[in-house]
């Protein structure tokens, strides 16, 4: 069994009027089944309102299923006795870098989680040191968060989660408010944590370039899982992605267009090197034969 498991998950946002009568029910997640293996890097894609962020909050126990079950390391998120264990097993990084840093000094913010968990002082310092090192922010430990760039703030937020020694990190659109350099910085950090520390990563995003390195990509639309596969499998279905109002990276799109025009290229090309590796020999061959 995987570390995160959703079984027939349904979640409704219920809007009530002043007399507590149900006024409107908005189904955000509609019968989701998902099983995520420990140590894997899974990306969830979808446009705004597809239910992907709601799912992220389910995994952390910030929202509780309307129907169905979410199990984190076998613990049911409905079980109030385990809620803090769920949260420390599956740590969460949010979208807005400013609204999740609590401390006035970087190192104090990283220590916030362990403090809440009642970790002894000496152990907190050890964890803070390690976590800051893991995200490459040791040099900034005494800085005020206000003085950092967006990408650095998100790395501090990731360190804050790492200090809780989670098995899994959920990142809910962590790069949506960053510039391209900040985005790269955060994704690189997350990939390293996944590779070096074997942390399970659940990355929620709508930037396609960020999911190229994932082990598995899940596409959500209207609260349902509509695509599931490796990045290569997903990116070979360019038309479908566009129907779900998602983009593909320019490389993939060019490869797709050329393939449509009859060039012998593989399906689901992800990187520039792959494209060039196939395109260059073919073009050279064509040019030579034209010359003859």
């Amino acid at each position: 069994m995987g570390i995160i498991k959703a079984v027939n998950l349904i979640f409704d946002y219920i809007k009530r009027d002043e007399e507590e009568q149900i006024e409107e029910v908005d189904r955000a997640i509609d019968g989701l089944n998902l099983d995520i293996q420990e140590g894997s890097f899974v990306a969830i894609l979808g446009h705004n309102g597809s239910g992907k962020s709601t799912f992220a909050k389910q995994v952390n126990g910030l929202l509780i299923p309307t129907e169905g079950t979410v199990l984190i390391s076998g613990m049911d998120t409905r079980d109030e006795n385990h809620i803090w264990d769920v949260r420390r097993t599956a740590g969460m990084v949010f979208q807005n870098p400013d609204n999740q840093i609590i401390g006035n000094v970087v190192e104090e913010d990283v220590g916030f989680g362990p403090e809440n968990m009642g970790v002894p002082t000496e152990e907190i310092w050890k964890r803070v040191d390690e976590s800051l090192e893991a995200v490459g922010m040791t040099a900034y430990r005494l800085k005020s968060p206000g003085k950092l760039s967006g990408g650095q703030k998100q790395r501090v937020a990731i360190a804050g989660v790492m200090a809780m020694k989670p098995k899994c990190i959920i990142l809910d659109e962590p790069t949506a408010m960053l510039d391209p350099n900040g985005r790269k910085e955060v994704i690189r950090t997350v990939q390293e944590l996944n590779r070096r520390e074997h942390i399970t990563v659940l990355l929620i995003t709508h930037y396609m370039e960020e999911v190229v390195g994932a082990d598995r990509v899940v596409v959500m639309d209207e609260g349902k899982m509509v695509m599931d596969g490796t990045p290569r499998e997903i990116f070979s279905r360019v038309k479908e992605l566009k129907e779900y109002r998602l983009d593909v990276p320019q490389v993939t799109e060019l490869a797709f267009e050329l393939r449509q025009a009859g060039l012998p290229l593989s399906k689901g090309i992800l990187t520039m090197y792959e494209l060039l590796g196939e395109l260059v020999p073919y073009l050279k061959e064509q040019i030579r034969s034209q010359g003859e």
């Binding site: 060019l254 267009e257 050329l258 025009a261 009859g262 060039l263 073009l283 064509q286 040019i287 034209q290």
Partner: peptide
């Protein structure tokens, strides 16, 4: 880019 490559190979 697509058009340029296709032109190159005479398509």
């Amino acid at each position: 880019a697509r058009d340029a490559i296709l032109r190159l190979i005479g398509k």
